[in-house]
Every structure is written in structure tokens, then in C-alpha cells.
């Protein structure tokens, strides 16, 4: 307390106060401050709309915004958007489950058994260097462009981050905690459940976050590049072929929103599972 008294508020704070004879309500200030973030997107949208009005060729690339709106209503009413978004979401989550679980399994085995690490470590390290979509032509040759091929590529994308993070997580179990487990005579299963797993969990959840992002990107990528079946990527592919910028734009926005939503859900799960950690 005495410290604060020795350092009086600096003069500009007073100046601020004097100017504000009748301060606007706090919520209004907050709203105006927030609204500044909308200026740039709105300006861009206006420029876009203006560009579309120059001539017909420009209107082909820069679709007038009212047309985009019509497209949106159309996609919503036919259920096209929902079906394709659902298909992409299912593909990404299945790939995450398949690739992620195998990643966690192999990662924990590699952390627990040096032999497994020595046998598979270097090989997996080499395979990891090829970006998930880099496998696409090869997988396309072997499995065609159907669902198996897509699912495999998405699973591969989700596999590596979880392999790496679960390996690191399990490898960093602290000796002092394991020692407590010995003193308390915990069974193997209990040591795993109450010491190893919680130690590895933060790292594994980080891996789930990365794997989710990779799975989502790869889902869009494989749909876009194969251009077959349902999915936002395929929808976008078809729209691009037809020169339908409105649908392409709506797909981009949907993909961004869905990625953001998935991330948000994961961070809520994370906060719930890791609430034992010191925060801040």
C-alpha cells in the first residue's frame, strides 16, 4: 500500500480524466473499439463489389455480393452445403481417429520399449518428411480416387503429430513420480493410469490439436485434388470448374469457420482435462 502512495498517478491520467466531462457508457466504447475490426473486411467487400460492376469479365471473377448471397440461400435450401460439410467433417474425424489412435499406440510403445523405437523410429522419421498430400499421386495410383484413398491420406496426416507428441509425452514421465508409485506398490495398470497417462496427457492433447488441423487441411486437400464424391473440397472443385466464384467463396468461409469451431471445441476439452494444471 505504501508503495503505491509514494508513486502518485502520472499526469496524463489526470489529463485524460479532465477531457472526459461526460464519458460515454463503457459498453459503447467497447463496441466501437470492437467495430474497428470490421472496417477492413467491409472495405474489401465494397472494393470487391465495385470491381464486379466494372464490366462482365470482371464480374466473372468478382461475383457481385448479392449473387453470393443468392448462392448461399440456394446451397442452404437444397441442403447441399450441409451434406458436403457433413461429409468433410466425417472424413476428417474418422481420419483423426484412425491415424491418431495408431499414432498414440505406436508413440507410447516407442517410449516404453527402446527396441520398438530403434526398429521403427528412423523409418517413420523418413516417412514423415513427405507432406501428407505428397503421397496423393501414389495412393491415387494404388487405391484410386475413392473413399479408401482419401481416408488413408487423412489418417496419415493425423498420424505423425500424435506419434511424435505421445512419444515425447510418455518419455518425459518423471522419476520422482514413478518412485512414489513404487513406494505405494501400484500395479502396472495403475502406474500407467495414474502416473504415465496424466504426465503424457498435455503433450498428447497438443498432438490432437495439431493432428486435427492437419486432418482438416488434408481432408479439404484430398477432396479438392481428387474432386470426387461429397465434401466441401469437391464442391469447391466443381464450382471452380464451372467458374462459380460465389460457391467457391462460400466454401472458403465454411472451411474457415468449421476449422475454427473444431479448434474451439478442442480447447474446451483441453481446459476441462487439464484443469489440474497451474494456470496463468
Amino acid at each position: 500500500m505504501s508503495l503505491i502512495a509514494e508513486f502518485p498517478p502520472t499526469s496524463f491520467v489526470y489529463a485524460d480524466r479532465i477531457e472526459d466531462h461526460d464519458p460515454p457508457p463503457a459498453w459503447l466504447v467497447a463496441l466501437v473499439k470492437r467495430a474497428r475490426g470490421l472496417v477492413l473486411p467491409l472495405l474489401l467487400a465494397a472494393a470487391w463489389h465495385w470491381a464486379s460492376s466494372i464490366d462482365a469479365s470482371m464480374a466473372y471473377a468478382f461475383v457481385p455480393l448479392d449473387q453470393v448471397w443468392e448462392r448461399l440461400l440456394q446451397l442452404l435450401s437444397t441442403g447441399e452445403l450441409a451434406i458436403n460439410a457433413g461429409s468433410s467433417l466425417g472424413r476428417a474425424l474418422t481420419g483423426l481417429a484412425l491415424g491418431g489412435l495408431s499414432g498414440i499406440l505406436l508413440g507410447s510403445l516407442m517410449a516404453g520399449f527402446p527396441l520398438v523405437e530403434r526398429l521403427f523410429g528412423p523409418l517413420l522419421q523418413a516417412f514423415r518428411q513427405v507432406p501428407p498430400l505428397g503421397w496423393l499421386p501414389l495412393v491415387g495410383l494404388w487405391l484410386g480416387s475413392g473413399e479408401e484413398a482419401k481416408q488413408l491420406l487423412v489418417a496419415v496426416a493425423a498420424f505423425h503429430p500424435l506419434l511424435l507428441n505421445s512419444y515425447e509425452g510418455f518419455a518425459q514421465a518423471e522419476k520422482k513420480h514413478l518412485e512414489v508409485g513404487r513406494v505405494l506398490m501400484l500395479s502396472r495398470w495403475r502406474s500407467f493410469r495414474f502416473i504415465l497417462l496424466p504426465t503424457a496427457l498435455p503433450s498428447i492433447l497438443t498432438g490432437v490439436g495439431q493432428a486435427l488441423a492437419f486432418a482438416w487441411i488434408s481432408t479439404i486437400g484430398v477432396e479438392l485434388l481428387f474432386g470426387t464424391g461429397a465434401g466441401l473440397g469437391s464442391l469447391m472443385h466443381t464450382a471452380q470448374m464451372a467458374g462459380d466464384m460465389g460457391v467457391v467463396l462460400l466454401c472458403v468461409i465454411s472451411i474457415g469457420l468449421m476449422g475454427y469451431g473444431l479448434n474451439l471445441i478442442l480447447s474446451l476439452v483441453r481446459a476441462r482435462l487439464l484443469r489440474w494444471r497451474v494456470t496463468g
Binding site: R36, L40, A61, L133, A213, M245, L249, I255
Partner: peptide, 25 residues
């Protein structure tokens, strides 16, 4: 204040999703 939110929003979209749009443009 002006560009931050838009930057954060565009960042959510994977680069690959911009391919068709850029091809059309």
C-alpha cells in the same frame, strides 16, 4: 485494431482452400 481481427479470421482458413479462388482470380 483495424487489421488484427481480419488477420486472425483469414488465418483460420487452410491455404489449400484458397487454391480454387486464386485460380479463378
Amino acid at each position: 485494431a483495424f487489421a488484427g481481427p481480419f488477420f486472425q479470421a483469414v488465418r483460420q482458413v487452410p491455404s489449400i482452400a484458397f487454391l480454387p479462388m486464386l485460380i479463378l482470380l
